[in-house]
Design a protein around this nucleic acid. Structure first.
Lengths: 96, 96
DNA sequence: ATTATATTTCTATATTTCTAGAAATATAGC
DNA sequence: GCTATATTTCTAGAAATATAGAAATATAAT
């Protein structure tokens, strides 16, 4: 895990709307949720939601797969874990 | 831990310079480092560094204590841990 | 082909953030 | 009080981000 990559993920999670989206997906498990369900549950206009979702995808925090007209969004647990590990690693290694 | 508070912390960590500052402090242990040492090690102009540091303080990610003319900065491990816990909690609780 | 549904792209506006030089403030030593 | 050192505040321009309506695209159903 590289600093720029970690910063990108943290930055995208660091917005209340995107964090709410991500938390909702984490809660829903590996199958994820459809964009439309997120939109209805969170009450975000479609264009705004779409932008936030592509930000999260660009940070590798979620993946999407289409089933007919419906696009499912799944959180990427592995990437989140790698970012968390990066944050915590090397703690106090400089200690005298 | 509340969503807004977590988002704030993640947002402030989500900038390469601030993440580098935070990682450097994490590495240095509980005593932290002086602002001047950070400035020299990371090569950031003083005014820029000062802004980034106050962003991190405003997110409760670090605390500062003064010793004479020198200001030490320490990472707040507890707050970081709370944010990480918030990110991971309720995982898959919606699973059918 | 037409219509309905799901989602994205286009576009524009408003707001926030980043950066760093210059000036100001705080503390300490002489 | 004067000088040096450490850090912050002021300022402002440039760049990035957020928001959402309207139009466009993609897929499916009839």
């Amino acid at each position: 895990m590289d600093l720029e990559v970690a910063a990108k993920a943290l930055k995208e999670l660091g917005h209340p709307t995107r964090l709410a989206i991500f938390k909702r997906l984490v809660k829903s498990g590996h199958r994820g949720l459809a964009v439309g369900v997120l939109q209805e549950e969170l009450g975000i206009p479609n264009s705004t939601l779409s932008h936030h979702l592509s930000s999260l995808v660009s940070a590798n925090l979620l993946s999407q797969d289409r089933e007919g007209r419906t696009l499912y969004c799944q959180p990427d647990y592995g990437h989140l874990q790698a970012v968390v590990d990066f944050l915590q690693e090397e703690c106090c290694s400089d200690q005298k």
